[in-house]
């Protein structure tokens, strides 16, 4: 790459002005190149998935692949899993984190360390262990589609935990709680009417991250023999690459939208609320 060679060359202090301009060109070139390379597979999958040779734009590959399948069921499965895993994570983590921040801040370091473990254990190892353990401990459990929910909660834990923890740190929880209590609010009123509205941004961020991850999860679902949308995509891809490309394009686009929503929503929050601590 040409950029590497240019970097050490511009080292002459006298030519400071041309140096800056030259560096800018290199940087813009790198970013531009990255943009093109990032987008190439995206553009290609749209072009490949929504055309037929000699016919131009066509939805036929996708329609043919979807005809006679139960894609609606599989999409619904993925949607259900996304919603349930997200709700599950929030119900488990929000009260836990609030309690710890209020009553036992010294435990936060330990729980944060715990929350990173799923980052260290690859999904495939988790499936293998879960398969081994639950087949002996509770054979009926893995049959249900909903048995995936706790594992998705585990896989998304590092991201969701961080997002919620950062949100709680950015508000002055103790002061809010004490103020609300001194005005006579019951704990659940404080939680519902004061704390949660203040955490809206990080709740939404955590939910979007969780949904985006569940949308693309393949290893756990496939190996535990549940049919979700990514599993369907691989089945289609075995003999209909055009339809698979079209579905991939849609998946990537939706993921991006979810995460773009996240960064747009959280950007002003972090700047306006980053101050207190």
């Amino acid at each position: 790459m040409a950029a590497i060679e240019k970097l050490p060359l511009v080292s002459d202090g006298v030519k400071a002005r041309t140096q800056v301009a030259g560096g800018d060109v290199v940087r813009t070139a790198i970013i531009g190149l990255a943009l093109v390379l990032f987008f190439l597979p995206l553009v290609a999958s749209a072009a490949f998935g929504f055309t037929l040779p000699g016919q131009g734009i066509s939805f036929e590959p996708l329609r043919d692949a979807l005809a006679g399948t139960d894609i609606a069921t599989q999409l619904m499965n993925t949607a259900k899993l996304a919603v349930l895993s997200t709700i599950g994570s929030l119900v488990l983590l929000v009260p836990t984190l609030l309690f710890l921040h209020l009553k036992a801040p010294n435990l936060l370091r330990f729980t944060e360390w715990l929350s990173v473990i799923p980052y260290v254990v690859p999904a495939i190892a988790l499936v293998a262990g879960a398969n081994l353990f639950f087949r002996q401990a509770a054979p009926g459990f893995m049959v249900s589609l909903y048995s995936l929910v706790p594992f998705y909660m585990v896989l998304t834990l590092p991201l969701v935990y961080r997002s919620l923890d950062a949100g709680i740190r950015s508000i002055d929880l103790r002061t809010l709680w004490a103020a609300s209590e001194s005005l006579g609010a019951k704990p659940w009123q404080t939680l519902w009417q004061v704390v949660l509205p203040n955490l809206r941004g990080s709740l939404l961020g955590a939910s979007l991250l969780s949904c985006a991850m569940v949308l693309g999860e393949y290893a756990v679902a496939a190996l535990l023999l549940h049919s979700t949308f990514p599993v369907f995509m691989v089945q289609v891809g075995m003999n209909q690459p055009r339809a698979a490309a079209a579905l991939s394009f849609i998946t990537i686009l939706v993921t991006w939208l979810l995460l773009a929503l996240l960064s747009r929503d959280s950007a002003p929050k972090t700047t306006s609320k980053g101050g207190p601590r």
């Binding site: 190439l40 597979p41 490949f48 693309g216 393949y218 991939s248 394009f249 998946t251 990537i252």
Partner: peptide, 14 residues
């Protein structure tokens, strides 16, 4: 964060 099957098929398309 992408990885996964969508990336695989996008590359096959490319």
């Amino acid at each position: 964060q992408m990885g996964g099957v969508a990336l695989a098929f996008a590359f096959i398309a490319t």
